[in-house]
Computed example of a mutant assay.
Amino acid sequence: MANVMDLYQQVTRLPAGKRIFSELFSRKAPYFATVRPRFVELRPNYAELRIGKRRGVQNHLGTVHVIAICNGLEAAMGSLAEASVPAHKRWIPKGMDVRYTAKATTDITCIAETDPDAWNGDDPDLPVRVRAVREDGVVVVEGVIRLWVTEKPARAD
């Protein structure tokens, strides 16, 4: 998704802009649409979105299913990565390590964060910290999504 920050900044100026951006983002990566993410904030090295507690994402206990939460965390990470990656580099997720720490009994806020300096180092392994939080502030999932960040290949013109 080229220029995700430009799109976010342009669209969020409109009435209902965050909703519009959320829908556009989900169209680019259709699997994310399954959790209906609603972006709260996006900037380099930080992304925050919400997943509503609704029947389509609940498990047999009536809580938000952890895999739906992981989908939301990956959407947050993906938008963060697109907003943060230097123009001469590319990224791909290579793994997720998460812990389930509490029941997800409400709408969930998914947050992804990383350190700005991590994008400029020589180590291609870049950790993105992720957490999912209930409305009462309790963290229900926390962990790291690891990215593989490399130089873009030289273009043959």
Rank of each mutant, 00 (worst) to 15 (best):
A81N: 06
E82S: 13
E82H: 08
A83F: 02
A83R: 07
A83S: 12
A83Q: 08
S84T: 05
V85G: 09
V85Q: 08
V85R: 09
P86D: 11
P86G: 12
P86F: 02
A87T: 12
H88I: 05
R90A: 11
W91R: 06
W91N: 05
W91T: 07
W91H: 06
I92K: 14
I92Q: 08
P93Q: 13
P93T: 11
K94Q: 13
K94G: 13
K94R: 15
K94W: 00
G95I: 02
G95P: 10
M96Q: 09
M96T: 12
M96K: 04
V98T: 15
V98C: 14
R99W: 02
R99G: 05
R99P: 02
R99M: 13
R99Y: 07
Y100E: 13
Y100Q: 15
T101N: 01
T101G: 03
T101V: 07
A102Y: 00
A102D: 11
A102N: 10
K103I: 00
A104W: 01
A104Q: 06
T105K: 15
T106M: 06
T106D: 15
T106K: 06
D107L: 04
D107K: 07
I108Q: 11
I108M: 08
I108P: 09
I108W: 02
I108R: 11
T109S: 10
T109A: 06
C110A: 14
C110Y: 03
A112I: 03
A112M: 03
T114D: 13
T114I: 07
D115N: 02
D115V: 10
P116Y: 02
P116Q: 12
P116R: 14
P116T: 06
D117P: 02
D117W: 01
A118L: 11
A118T: 07
A118M: 03
A118C: 01
W119D: 07
N120M: 04
N120L: 10
G121R: 11
G121N: 05
G121H: 07
G121Y: 09
G121A: 08
D122I: 01
D122R: 13
D122V: 03
D122H: 02
D125T: 08
D125G: 02
D125S: 12
L126K: 12
P127G: 13
P127L: 12
R129T: 12
V130M: 06
R131F: 00
A132H: 00
A132L: 04
A132K: 02
A132P: 03
V133D: 08
V133C: 04
E135L: 13
E135M: 12
E135K: 11
D136S: 03
D136Y: 04
V138I: 14
V138W: 00
V139R: 10
V140N: 02
V141E: 11
V141H: 06
E142Q: 13
E142A: 04
G143Y: 09
G143L: 07
G143E: 10
V144F: 01
V144L: 06
I145P: 01
I145Q: 14
R146I: 00
R146L: 07
R146S: 14
L147D: 08
L147G: 13
L147C: 08
L147Q: 04
L147A: 12
L147H: 05
W148A: 05
W148Y: 10
W148K: 09
W148M: 05
W148S: 11
